[in-house]
Design a protein around this nucleic acid. Sequence first.
RNA 1: GUGCUUGUAGCUCAGUUGGAUAGAGCGUUUCCCUCCGAAGGAAAAGGUCGUGGGUUCGACUCCCGUCAAGCACACCA
Length: 570
Amino acid sequence: MIKDYFLDNIENAVLRAVEAGKLGQMSEYQKGTLIVEKPKNPDFGDFAVNVSSLARSAKIAPPMIANAIVEEIDKDDNEYSVIGGFINFKAGKNLLTDSIDEIFKKRESFGRPENNNKEKIILEYVSANPTGPFHIGHGRWAAMGSVLANLLKFYGHDVYQEFYINDAGSQIQKLGNSLAIRIRQQLGEDIDFPSDEIERKNYYPGDYLIPVAEKYLKTHSGLPGDVKELSDFAKNEMENLQKELLKHFRVYFDNFYSELTLHQSGKVDECVNKLKKSGKIYTKDGADWFRSSDYGDDQDRVIKKADGSNTYLTADIAYHIDKLERGFDRMINIWGADHHGYVARVKASIEALGYNPDKLEILLGQLVNLVINGNEVRMGKRKNMVTLDDLIEEVGVDATRFWMSMRNIDTTLDFDIELAKTNSDENPVFYVQYAHARACSILRNAVEEKFDTQTGKTLPAPLTAVEFEELKNNYKKEDLLPTIDTARKLILKLEEFKSMIKMSAETRQVYTICRYVQELASEFHSFYNANRVISEDKALMKSRLALVLSVKQVLKNALDILAVTAPERM
RNA sequence: GUGCUUGUAGCUCAGUUGGAUAGAGCGUUUCCCUCCGAAGGAAAAGGUCGUGGGUUCGACUCCCGUCAAGCACACCA
């Protein structure tokens, strides 16, 4: 990376300058204290380092330090300049041609770091109850989670994606009771869900169980004796619906982990026993309590209720311990912000059972607001629920994925349906896809004959197929030279893909990919308007085609991580 | 009441571990197609970084207070 090359040069120069006694009273330098930034004013250079922080130990003025360091640098064909305490850097032709060269060499793996410490990661997200269709909020976790999985894989990690099915507990019984009412309605009975608000909470009154009731009656003549049969039937239907939607939304789980099996396998009881042995359990009011407050939680938590049954937390503890026992180095969970109270207690349990709680990373996501015609539509718990299915049908998979991923997970997301549907620059997805389609179009034109309507003659293709293949497969660094001065910004933006990926993967911030891809598209559109690619000057044309090929490749790499399509034409 | 998150241009948001004149997109205004996709580009205008203190050479960034918004505070899942 150019950035790293620059920092490396600076730091080595600092070490030499210290050795030579040129940095005043400074006697040692610790690598990593200086940081590279982008100059606010691009005229200063591509990158910069501020050496003011060394002034304290050197006891000389920052500009003098900067000059002393620059003197020690092997400059190659790059430019270094000093302004105040800043050392500015402008990459020379060697670095620029190298970076395009790297794109041609690495292709679809361009951007993957050379040596990273590969981790075995289990990423858990969505994990919805199988009691109804996904709502819009689930869409955010689904999109962000799958992008994060793609990103971490691209980065080089081993990623296992898991969906935890909350298929135990009273909600499943509620689901069965609700289906029973829908079936009786189908059978012609005059019956409905209770109108009393409190009683109504014991049911799922959404319309989505009507088709399930119809389906049930196709193979059964009436209500079963046991409501459990209905619960299982409905649960199964909901799970299948959810799985289908996830696939359609390009979200692929390696495993769906049923909470129920966790109970049935005895792992939950096993976990309770282990906790008891650890001495962190006490009995109060007939229930067993876990001393989570010993590990930073604000209060202790019930782990076995007075009636002898386990709480939701108990299963969750067992689940996380199971993940650890499956040998993962790291667990990453995406949870809605409404679950933030659970972080401390789950981490506490991991620590109490002798595991390292730092292995668990929980990304808390703020919720989603739907904006329709400029008005916020707040997502109520049950009423007015817009399903993810509806949203995707309305705006498409690409736009939904992009919009759900484009904001920092810490901010509530405003999803503007109208904007996501527009086909213009107001819509970032469209803008980016257009850039890719435009690149493809130029590449097509480069090898196509053209019919001239004025003369009625057919003009030969600007480049023969053989020449084009040669450029693509046997690209040489010199090929880029004719256009290198007009394409500096574009080349640097392409090169930035590597540092963007690194940052994004290490901080788990997928929205930076969406930002990057917009910036790259913008640089490309700008380059396109200022420089004609297809022209008489063959060397110049080839150099610019090389850039177009690079842009296409990098856009594709980024869009693949987002799992948004990169269209050849639109 | 306690905890977590958020407050930056008219709107939606960046701001990379404290650094140069606080950035981008949309919207507004003005330009740019005889020509590779104008579904695009160039430029202008637009700011008391919620607010009041503090820390230091330097604060959107760190600390304390305060105001506003969202969420959570079960022997529910």
